[in-house]
Nucleic acid binder design. Structure first.
Lengths: 343, 343
DNA sequence: ATGAAAGCGCTAACAA
DNA sequence: TTGTTAGCGCTTTCAT
């Protein structure tokens, strides 16, 4: 009957439903999509019955081809193994799901080449928009503007010309964390931070803001990957110095967790010998031993904002930056009392 | 020119490329897909040049509609916030990516209703296959067979009639973990386990196997969710007893991490006062304080196997079960020496 | 080795 | 209120 290959799955199509219900295919469409034309109540009931009986399920590919919208969002993260990004992914998926969109989650392993390839792939899969979360904004960002796909940069700390951006005020957050350590009486606060990149500079600035405002000399700084291992190595280097710091600000939970392990191996006690505060505030930090004091990123709100901007873009509003304020949640690692569960 | 809506994005189509290269659209297809018909080298070069110049990108929706394959896999997990599932997701995505497939990751929050809804949604998005990873196999599994979409159950511990299944030998794993605690001289090994479900029974059996084989009385058992909080609450209940256990086997990393926090709050030292071994063996367990001894699930291998079965199903081979053997990795929490990083 | 053309399942403009 | 129908961009058979 067809000159080409038959459909691979014995799919029930819209015309089967139309035939069964004794209506035209257009009416089936109107019922399924609740519009754009009205359908008589009795007819609609008959169509719905046919759909139920036949087990009809609209073909999303065909719809996408026709409408130009896949109702899919792409989410690019540098590493899904990092609880911060896992949290972001959960939140993005939930919000998108509520709005009828699925999420194509991809993982760049923090590799700019992979990142570009993944973005290309998302575009050719016709996602309706891309949320890019990365540490270092490089060529991928240029691609985004070139490819002409709606996008939001998530996890940026400042506005970026021509882009929708969502992030936290990392500088203020880092400053608050370091100030808290200074309030505990520390005068030598080390910083464990990532390699250069957007978010990194802001945290470094915040750390400097706090120590300088207190009239303290700049403490030691070590750069390491945003991983547990990176934090471990960084702490090992910091505490190998002749005059080790008495406090530590880690620019991510993962690094703090790694540092805790290093300090334990070195026989240093937290918070007695070394106080620790970190940036991120995922549940893993909350359950670390000792409980980590952290400047918490409001991942849910950030994700909501990013998804909303993609799914319901406000007409005539120029791309802009939304900055959330991270909140310090003290725990045992800075010398404060333990924060009980469910706090 | 068209009687209907214009395409939403000013997309470059295959016929633009054909026109530019002075060939037919069929030839463009042959070049893009490297087949099924041969193309003269010179022609192919011209086509590739046209593609480059025009920035042509094949439309995946159209291709999917035509071929019946989206080259997308659906992955359903109960909670992506759990590092075990995050690890599974990473591995699935990587393997699928290497094979040219994208992954639609969805999160059921361990809710059977959400799980069913998500599966429906994946099916209507015409994924080529679904990997279902869940704790409790319920109605969703029935849906899978009804809907006629290829699927693999990941994280099952035993064969299941008519399904492709991939899992670990949880019974043997749990037994090995508990036996190790017994070798350390413990005679009262408590079990923290999830609420009833497939994987749960096997771990409980393994725990019983070990204690009974050693001629010990059955230890105390507490059921709790597979969360940090669940482990915390469970440990609090266990150590409230008149004769508390001297060792603990947690059926997941998350529960062990929570238990560690509870023990710390109770002033009990690990491993001196209480030894701990857990199931899963994610990096979080490795970096816990003290380092958790764990029976490690080989998530990468499991994910590979699941993806492969979906993407390259072996013809004429009946659905079957593949079981991986988890391996005990000792750490400090059972009383063994710390396992150094990078081990 | 290449071209022409049918049609995948759907939406929506237009006609009735 | 409902039906008819043109195509979305692609693959592939069949003809050349």
């Amino acid at each position: 009957m067809s000159s080409t290959t038959p459909p691979p799955r014995g799919q029930v199509t819209r015309s089967d439903v139309a035939r069964y219900a004794g209506v035209s295919t257009a009416v089936v469409s109107y019922v399924v999509n609740a519009g754009p034309r009205p359908v008589a109540a009795a007819t609609a009931t008959r169509v719905r019955e046919a759909i139920r009986v036949l087990g009809y399920r609209p073909n999303a590919s065909a719809r996408a081809l026709r409408t130009g919208s896949t109702r899919m969002l792409g989410l690019v993260v540098p590493e899904i193994g990092n609880p911060l990004f896992a949290g972001l992914a959960v939140a993005v998926e939930q919000t998108a799901g509520r709005l009828g969109h699925a999420v194509l989650l991809v993982n760049s392993e923090s590799d700019p080449h992979i990142e570009r390839r993944l973005i290309q792939s998302l575009v050719s899969r016709q996602v309706d928009g891309i949320i890019l979360s990365t540490v270092q904004y490089g060529a991928a960002v240029v691609d985004l503007s070139t490819l002409g796909v709606p996008s939001v940069l998530l996890n940026t700390f400042e506005a970026r010309e021509g882009f929708e951006t969502v992030g936290v005020d990392a500088r203020a957050g880092a400053r608050a964390g370091v100030e808290h350590l200074i309030e505990h009486g520390h005068t030598r606060v080390a910083l464990i931070i990532g390699h250069s990149g957007d978010a990194v500079e802001a945290r470094e600035q915040g750390w400097l803001d706090a120590t300088r405002a207190a009239g303290l000399p700049d403490g030691p700084l070590v750069r390491a990957p945003f991983t547990r291992r990176g934090g471990y190595d960084a702490a090992m280097r910091l505490f190998d110095a002749p005059v080790p710091p008495s406090a530590l600000f880690a620019s991510s939970d993962m690094q703090a967790v790694g540092a805790l392990r290093a300090l334990d191996e070195l026989g240093l006690r937290v918070p007695d010998d070394v106080a620790v505060v970190c940036f991120d505030g995922t549940e893993e930090a909350d359950f670390a031993t000792p409980q980590l004091s952290a400047v918490r990123q409001p991942v849910e709100e950030m994700a909501d904002e990013a998804v909303l901007r993609l799914v319901s873009p406000r007409e005539g509003v120029a791309p802009h930056h939304v900055s959330f304020t991270p909140l310090l949640r003290t725990g045992r690692s800075c010398g404060c009392p333990v924060r009980p569960l469910d706090a």
